[in-house]
Nucleic acid binder design. Structure first.
Lengths: 339, 339
DNA sequence: TTGTATGCGTTATCAG
DNA sequence: CTGATAACGCATACAA
């Protein structure tokens, strides 16, 4: 139990030193890894600290060695299934290596983006991780120009300086085409969104190219923002025509869920008998019984793992500007006909 | 564009002062709200700062006035629809009042919880917001004992000291019962989880009491952790018996989705004709066409708003220990029979 | 308005 | 191993 001093809200090393009858340095050393303190003083210090409720002030500590231990996570659409899982994984890994995550939510106007960026710099973050394709490139450039260690995720724009972690969207999208093609589908639609994020575009293109190589044309529909609603709307548009597609590649699972629901609820269609669907991300809902969506798994664990590797590296300059690309493996469920 | 000094990675006010030909204080005043600087020096300073890429060091600033601007968000299950939305809303509001969110993910062992807590204190957070019922009370107590401003969300345990924001789970659960009862349902099951979180328990109890008052008994099933899988499992258990319930109150939308899917996929039942379902939280999936779940809306916006109010208050001591309870309004969709 | 001097809580350096 | 002292980057009381 701690005895709270009424005056200052936080306890300082000075106060601990006085109570323990030692110098401030002794207190400091007690809480510094690898410092040499005798067992007796150590005991005294720890006891005093415990009684007073002392906790090392990282803010002051960061003033000395240029290492705040803070990692900034800049993202949009935090409430989306895929992004929230990514955030979950990264924050957990970060904690495991004794870093702390500062989350900046940029969904919104560019003013808030500006403010968000300032925060990153203001708090002397060790690194800034850009989680989504949404934050504008200008934001990222400012970070880099200010000497920030920037890590980009799922961004295929090739900037100089930052490290980037990507997923082989194009390869996976090509695979998606072949899955549908082998299933006998010929009239295939691509359902995308107006977000125009680098990874989404890469998926569109990869699929399109594979289709062209097979001598097929595809129509790309972008009904709105990336989400269930846009997928539903796209389904209503595409399936009401006389020339219904036999299959759809939805660049996101969320789009796929909406698309499937439109097909079933609005048009009473059966999946996969009358319509094959392939999604992307492997969000939790893709595995729900109502969907059983065949999709591609985002290598979330690998991404989170790699981020910590980059932060942990003893010689950060050696790896600057590196690019890593992970594979998104197909997850077979029931929305593509077998054979 | 900034000219990066090769030596130190971050620019200090000192360097800006030298370039601008003024004193350090002039630089400081330029970036301090309400300080008096002449327009000419202000211009000079701003220009120099721009060229050097200077950003005020909040870590150092926080050393002086006891206000780090950091708010700690402690939560478990960040990747869950409800919690990710809550996190989204709170981080956004926090940014709007110039605070920054430090998120601590406690899903995991108690060791990591311990470490997480230390971080909160180490970074001198202005406040700690506990987002979920999962983090143990001991953790919260340590925060309070260390003089932290603690805000509890969705915790009905009545601790002394922290402010708490709750939802009237009991009232809503009673309402849930009457919705089902008025629809003619008599054999009603309650689907809950083994999490035993205060709010979940409150919902169970509220429903149970209302049922008792109506002369009905209810069976409570707790199939596993709060999630789709547990709901599905509960459905399989409950609906395979000879004495099938006519309705189910699922204490969470996630449970409800799983339960509904079990009913439809495993037993071919129709909702709401053969089975009425009511959920809780109003997650996005509840509005999807496949579910159209009747549920109760979490007052997320109000919660986020209230948090900022608490942080913004000029006289924080005046409101310490306050309790606020928001209403969870019913959202009528299609899983309860009309009339 | 401007500059000087001091202190915020730490840690690193150095003498003991 | 220990204690005094000087930074770290910033804000402010005070004197000019």
């Amino acid at each position: 139990m701690s005895e709270l001093k009424p005056g200052r809200s936080f306890v300082s090393a000075q106060q601990v030193a006085e109570l323990a009858g030692v110098s401030r340095s002794a207190v400091s050393r007690t809480f510094t890894d690898g410092a040499s303190v005798s067992e007796t003083t150590r005991k005294k210090v720890l006891e005093a600290a415990e009684r007073l409720g002392y906790h090392v002030n990282h803010l002051a500590r960061s003033l000395i060695h240029e290492n705040s231990g803070i990692v900034c996570l800049i993202g949009a659409d935090i409430n989306t299934p895929y992004h929230s899982r990514l955030l979950d994984a990264i924050t957990r890994r970060l904690q495991a290596i004794n870093r702390v995550a500062m989350v900046i939510n940029t969904s919104g106007d560019s003013d808030s983006v500006e403010a968000a960026l300032r925060q990153t710099l203001n708090y002397r973050a060790n690194a800034t991780v850009v989680l989504s394709g949404t934050p504008p490139t200008s934001l990222i450039n400012t970070c880099i120009n200010s000497g920030q260690h920037v890590i980009l995720i799922n961004r295929d724009d090739h900037l100089d300086g930052p490290e980037s972690i990507t997923v082989d969207n194009g390869v996976a999208a090509r695979e998606a085409f072949h899955m549908l093609h082998r299933a006998g589908c010929r009239r295939i639609a691509v359902v995308s969104s107006q977000a125009g994020t680098p990874s989404l575009v890469a998926r569109e293109r990869g699929f399109e190219q594979a289709a062209q190589e097979a001598g097929l044309g595809v129509t790309i529909t972008r009904a709105g923002p990336t989400g269930y609603g846009a997928g539903f709307e796209a389904g209503r548009l595409l399936l009401s025509g006389s020339d219904r597609p036999e299959a759809a590649f939805c660049v996101t699972d969320l789009l796929a869920c909406g698309f499937m629901d439109a097909a079933r609820v609005e048009f009473g269609m059966n999946v996969p008998e009358e319509l094959c669907v392939v999604g992307f991300d492997d969000i939790e809902q893709a595995s729900w019984s109502s969907y059983q969506l065949t999709t591609f798994r985002q290598p979330i664990a690998q991404i989170a793992e790699h981020i910590t590797t980059l932060l942990d590296s003893e010689n950060p300059d050696a790896v600057r500007g590196g690019r890593v690309c992970f594979h998104a493996a197909p997850v077979w469920r029931r929305t593509v006909r077998p054979k």
